[in-house]
């Protein structure tokens, strides 16, 4: 188990070293001492978290733990009350929502092309690049499809392709599979793992589903609620591809769930 992880880490190090020596020590995302209040309510309390380049981190927590708020802060849609969020790669992080958020007035292909255009890719390169990204999510035939003609799982895959079109080093995902049926979600877990390994993108993935977190992540960060704090972190040293039914996944899920329940119980005591 550990050997696979080590090899992967070494690969990553080699890749980044040749590209740019300045970024080898930088994390993909650095969150230091972040507080966030909405009026009198403290939502995030002193969050410290780093996502290493190419790492897959799951933020896990019950409602009210501020995990989506934290993701919005990293995405730059909102700013922290105190503390700092750095994305050393310099590019705006890509963000995927629970709703596909595809634009219904554009075809699947044109949705991706819009992202490419806003990123500044020259016109003649957009179409082939959009087609390549659709093929990456195994929707090579869907270029001309309208959003309403696609199933829920297909829409999320187009949304993933559109997020990847930003060519960002960081992909933020806000419960992207929560609205899908279990069979489709299972397939998309496998696709996401494959695409993450192929692209080497760093992923910060928000979920309230413990098994999903253990299935996907290299590191699971459990957050406590009201205010949101980092309560515990697990390194998931299981080889990928994993399956959600794996005994080892189940075992760790039980452990994390116990901890999560403990956190939730504390709120009922006063």
């Amino acid at each position: 188990m550990t050997r696979t992880l080590l090899t992967k880490a070494a690969d990553l190090k080699d890749g980044t070293a040749t590209a740019d020596t300045a970024t080898t020590t930088d994390p993909a995302v650095r969150i230091t001492g972040v507080h966030k209040s909405f009026g009198p309510a403290l939502v995030l309390d002193d969050i410290d978290l780093e996502v290493r380049p190419g790492e897959f981190v799951c933020l896990l927590g019950a409602s009210g733990c501020g995990k989506s708020t934290l993701l919005n802060l990293v995405a730059g849609l909102d700013s922290p009350t105190a503390g700092a969020i750095e994305v050393p790669g310099g590019k705006r992080p890509a963000l995927m929502f629970q709703e596909h958020a595809l634009f219904p007035w554009l075809t699947a292909g044109k949705n991706i092309e819009l992202a490419l255009r806003l990123r500044g890719l020259p016109r003649e390169q957009r179409r082939p690049e959009a087609q390549r990204l659709l093929e990456l999510v195994r929707l090579g035939d869907a270029y001309k499809k309208r959003v309403h003609e696609l199933s829920g799982g297909m829409r999320q895959r187009v949304a993933l392709a559109r997020a990847l079109a930003q060519d960002s080093d960081v992909l933020l995902m806000d419960e992207p599979f929560a609205a899908l049926d279990a069979i489709t979600r299972d397939v998309l877990h496998e696709e996401l793992t494959r695409i993450w390994r192929e692209t080497g993108v760093s992923v910060l993935f928000v979920t309230h589903n413990v098994r999903e977190a253990v299935r996907l992540a290299q590191r699971v960060v459990l957050m406590s609620s009201r205010p949101g704090r980092v309560s515990r972190v697990w390194d998931v040293e299981l080889p990928q591809p994993r399956r959600i039914e794996d005994a080892a996944v189940a075992e760790l899920s039980v452990e994390i769930t116990e901890e999560l329940r403990g956190e939730i119980r504390r709120h009922g005591q006063h």
Partner: peptide, 17 residues
């Protein structure tokens, strides 16, 4: 497990469209 997923996905897509 992975080469299998493409077929599974194509099936899901066909069923749900």
């Amino acid at each position: 497990a992975h080469s299998d997923i493409a077929g599974l996905e194509a099936g899901l897509d066909a069923l749900e469209t």
